[in-house]
Simulated assay, not measured.
Amino acid sequence: MTYASLTPEQAECFERDGFLAIRGLVTPDEIAEIREAFMQQAADGPVPGLSDTPRGSSANDPLSRYPRMMHPHKHADKAVGRLAMRYMLDPRFRPILADLFGEEPLACQSMFYFKPPGARGQDLHQDNFYLRVKPGTCMAAWIAVDDADAGNGGMMCVPQTAMLDIACPEQADPALFFTTEHVEPPPGLEPQMMQLKAGDVLFFNGSVIHGSTPNTSADRFRRSLIFHYVPASTAEISHWYEALSFDGARQDIAINMDGGPCGTTQALPAGPH
C-alpha cells in the first residue's frame, strides 16, 4: 500500500513555522484502542520500570497517580509496549517524516502522557537539548489522544524557531511546570496554542520551542502518545536512545559525548509536552 506524503501546502507550512498538524491521521477507532490500553495499564497506579513520576511531586499531585510512561515500546511483555511499537513504526508516518527530514527516518523514542485534570504543564523547551542528535536534529510526532486546547493543557509551539541553536535553559516555575527547564523565545516571537482534535498528529523538529500549560479543567484528561525520530544520516545521539528502522532493524549510532549547550553532559531523557 502507498501512503500519502506531504502536499505542497503542508510542506510550505512546515518550512515557515517549523511545525505541522496533520488532521485525523489516526482514526477514532485507533485512538480508542490507544486510550483504553494505556488507561488499563495505569489502572493500578504507576508501573515500575515504565512510569516516570516527576521529581518533587507530592501525594496529592495528579501526576503522582498518572505519571508519564517512558519508552513503552521497549516493554514487549505488556500490551502497551506492543501497541507503542506498532504505532511508532506505523507506515503512515514514514513518508511524512521522510519529506520533513529529506531522507529516511529512524525511530528512537516513545512516550505516553496522561495529563489528568489539575496536572502541571511543561515549560517551553527544545527537544534536541535532550536527544542531542548530530548532525541535524530530531523530529516529534505528537498524537492527540484527547482534544487538546488551552482548557486542558494543550500544546504550544513558537513559530519561526526551527532554525535556532539549542539553548541552555533557565529555571522553570515548579508551581506551574513539572519539569525544570525553560527556554525563553526570541523577542517578538510568542507561543501559539495548537488546537488539536483526537487523532490529529503534530510534527515538529527538535529546535522548535514548545511546551504546554497546566490542565485547569475539572474533568478532562489531555492524553498524548508521542514518538521521536532522527534522520538516517545521524552520526551521534544521547545514550538514552536506540534507533530502529521502520522495518524494525536496530541501527548502530555512536553516543554523543559532548557537553551540550550548558557545558555539561545532559543526564536526562527527553521530557517534552
Rank of each mutant, 00 (worst) to 15 (best):
P67R: 09
L63M: 10
R82W: 00
Y87I: 07
M85I: 04
Y87H: 09
M85R: 14
S64L: 07
D61W: 04
M70F: 12
H71F: 10
S58H: 15
P62E: 06
V80Q: 02
L83N: 03
D61T: 08
M70C: 09
V80H: 10
N60H: 11
D61S: 08
H71A: 11
D77K: 14
A84H: 03
A59E: 05
A84L: 03
S57N: 12
L63H: 08
D61M: 05
H73C: 00
Y66N: 06
A76D: 15
R65E: 13
S58I: 14
R68P: 02
R82E: 06
A84C: 05
R68M: 10
P67T: 07
V80L: 10
H75N: 04
R68C: 09
R86I: 08
N60Y: 09
M70E: 13
R82H: 01
R68L: 12
Y87N: 04
P67I: 04
N60T: 13
P62C: 05
R82I: 00
Y87E: 01
G81E: 00
D77F: 10
H71Y: 11
R65G: 11
H71E: 04
R68N: 09
H75M: 11
M69A: 03
K74P: 00
Y66D: 02
K74F: 13
P67E: 06
R86C: 04
A79Q: 13
K78C: 12
R65D: 11
A84F: 01
K74T: 06
M85D: 01
H75V: 05
R65Q: 14
L83Y: 01
M69Q: 10
R65Y: 07
N60L: 12
A59D: 10
V80N: 11
D77C: 07
R68Y: 05
N60E: 12
P67V: 11
G81K: 00
Y66F: 14
N60P: 03
S64R: 14
H73L: 01
P72C: 10
R65P: 03
P72D: 09
V80S: 08
V80E: 12
M69T: 08
L63N: 02
L63S: 07
K74W: 09
P72W: 04
D77L: 04
R82M: 02
N60D: 14
A84Y: 01
L63K: 09
A79I: 14
R65F: 08
D61Y: 07
L83F: 06
P67F: 09
K74Q: 15
K74G: 09
P62T: 03
M70G: 11
H71C: 08
D77Y: 07
K78L: 15
G81S: 00
P72L: 11
M85T: 04
S57V: 01
H71R: 13
K74V: 04
R65L: 14
S64V: 10
D77S: 15
D61G: 09
H75F: 15
A79G: 10
M70W: 10
R65N: 13
S58L: 13
Y87M: 14
A59R: 08
M69C: 12
A79F: 13
V80W: 03
